[in-house]
Amino acid sequence: MKNSGKIITKDLNLFIGKQHILKNVNIVVPDNKITVILGPSGCGKTTLLKSMNRLTDLYPEMVLSGQILIDDKDILKAGAEVPEIRRKMGLLSQRPYPLPMSIYKNIAYGLKINGVSNHKELDDKVEYYLRLANLWDEVKDRLREPASTLSIGQQQRLCLARGLAVDPEIILADEPTSALDPLSSNAIEKQFVKLKSSYTIVVVTHILRQARRIADHIIFMYLGEVIEQGSANKFFNYPEMDKTREYLKGAFN
């Protein structure tokens, strides 16, 4: 494994009051791979993911210490440039949350915020990213309808397209298939595999089989601590830690 990575955390700790949510987290997320953060529910996976693009700012009761380096810059020290940092990271949440506007505007929103105002350019980009997320053919005749009229699976792909449209370098996905049916889940997973050559993808999941299907790199967490991390091959075939072996046998499920 290389020393450098796209995202590196150093002694990251997070408290909510006296609760110690993340305990000395030191991880390396490699570039252009799918990194899966794996672990049982409530082990801090989602919190770790949200701290990566400073969404933890929304919860004033969360206290962070340590470093999160993205391209060797500590984002926890960032001030005014936080929106720009967030833009570099597309977020896909557990359930799709389309913005309260039309399908078209859901994609155009991020573009407009980041300064695209030319109509032709907007039209082109909306189409491009809807195609990229494999949604264009299903929605091209109903772009002006509210996004809430789409099915959940379509909404999740819309959210993916929306995130990709602002040209991020990293995709953060928080159990992105947990609300979806198997077919839609499959579509999302395929998207990730397709996209990984141009993005750094971090997926949080508690589904072991999903991790086996898509992961290149694994970070295994348990009760706020990172137990083991490394390539997926090594993790699944030659785990080092007892906790990992227990988990792989299904002890925590």
């Binding site: 949350y97 991020g110 980041n114």
Partner: peptide
């Protein structure tokens, strides 16, 4: 839902833009 705010912020919107548009 907070997730809606998160979605908007994750796209690079500021707090105020998020309030105004979302």
């Amino acid at each position: 839902p907070t997730e809606l705010t998160e979605a908007s912020l994750a796209l690079g919107a500021t707090r105020w833009q998020t309030i105004k548009f979302v």
